[in-house]
Design a binder for these strands. Structure first.
Lengths: 207, 207
DNA sequence: CTGGACTTCCTCCTTTTGGGGGAAAGCCGC
DNA sequence: GCGGCTTTCCCCCAAAAGGAGGAAGTCCAG
């Protein structure tokens, strides 16, 4: 038999780490070499344990799973990252893939699905459930928000008025209104409240 | 040695069920008698397995953990329900306790904490982490929203205008504005966008 | 170097929102 | 039955938000 696939589990929930480890341990071809609960731990785990595949949660203390994924993929390009998280929004899938993740799975998957996914990404393949693939494609077709539009949107989600945002960004209120109209169109909404909700729903801005 | 404490695990995430079961299995005084992934399964589990303690996630397909908790506590008052979930907002803690839960814990707890909590609630005690207890007290001091105020707030989170809400509820627009002003005061916010965000943050309305 | 995007601001205009206060009717608890 | 809350609506008013279109500068890619 060949070498086992070395796996690092990154999740801030102890119970979930235990569960994923237990699910994988039922298969002889996998070896869980370590666990981490935050971004720093994930980087150190890669450094010392040389995992083939990292199971990564997106909600992490210390900078989010996407950032951790990016750093891991830059330093260890042969290490595959498989995101396993609750569905957070189209934008999170997009960011994960952009950061170099090989796949995106939902917590709640079965042992068989998990095992198949790990093997696929280890062979260099990509993995995404049908339902998420659809959302992912939708996201890809959408235009990105510009820098200013994103800054305005973030402040909308903080409940700021146009005047406050203008002051905050150091521009005129009319400019803020221009960015707003533009991002309303891009998001397909009619007003700031819908924009805030859509931003949260898609994961463009986290609460 | 006395009878083991019989435990039912209710969570829609397979990995988490495995993890919690594994954590509990390390202690001889606990016996995981079953698992369920939704509300119906939880009820049936109580019917057939007579658990002493139910570990309950709040995010469940088929009506939310609070409803399941209520139904379990009504039919089997001696069965204790311990909510284990990611933090969803003050309102969810409040609803859980109102529904008859004996405690509210965060996923990510250690085995020792879990074991201690299960034993405490089995003895009839209550359990809540310090951080959550503070939020819970804050919630208790707040005035409840009235029926109309809640209906208006739900529609605000759907991005509806005053006119649409008025039409929807079959009242005049002026009435809607009255409810809005009132709920702005109760939530401590200045406009509808802040109200929507605060409603989501507190768990009053789920996205 | 040209076209397209982003950034910034402008004018003009309409609709929406939100604040204040008042008031009548109904219901519930003590 | 009285006080309090809720529901419903009214008035007046000011501020904020949003829609349309134009315009100029920057900056990058083809």
């Amino acid at each position: 038999m060949s070498e086992p696939i070395r796996i690092l589990i990154v999740d801030d929930h102890h119970a979930l780490r235990i569960g994923l480890a237990a699910m994988l341990s039922a298969f002889p071809q996998f070896l869980v070499v370590g666990e981490a609960a935050d971004t720093e731990g994930a980087i150190q785990g890669c450094e010392h344990l040389a995992p083939d595949v990292v199971l990564m949660d997106l909600r992490l203390p210390g900078g989010g799973g996407a950032e951790a994924t990016l750093r891991i993929r830059q330093r260890w390009p042969q290490t595959r990252v498989l995101v396993i998280t609750t569905y957070e929004g189209d934008e999170d899938i997009h960011r994960s893939i952009q950061s170099g993740a090989s796949g995106y799975l939902l917590k709640g998957l079965s042992s068989a699905e998990l095992a198949a996914a790990v093997e696929t990404v280890h062979r260099g393949g990509r993995v995404m459930p049908e339902a998420l693939a659809i959302r992912f494609k939708e996201r890809e077709q959408r235009k990105d928000l510009s820098g200013r539009e994103l800054e305005v949107l973030q402040r909308i989600v903080l409940g700021r008025s146009n005047k406050e945002i203008a002051l905050d960004l150091g521009v005129g209120e009319e400019s803020v209104k221009t960015y707003l109209r533009s991002l309303f169109h891009k998001l397909g909404v009619a007003d700031r409240t819908q924009a805030a909700i859509e931003a949260i729903r898609r994961g463009i801005v986290h609460l």
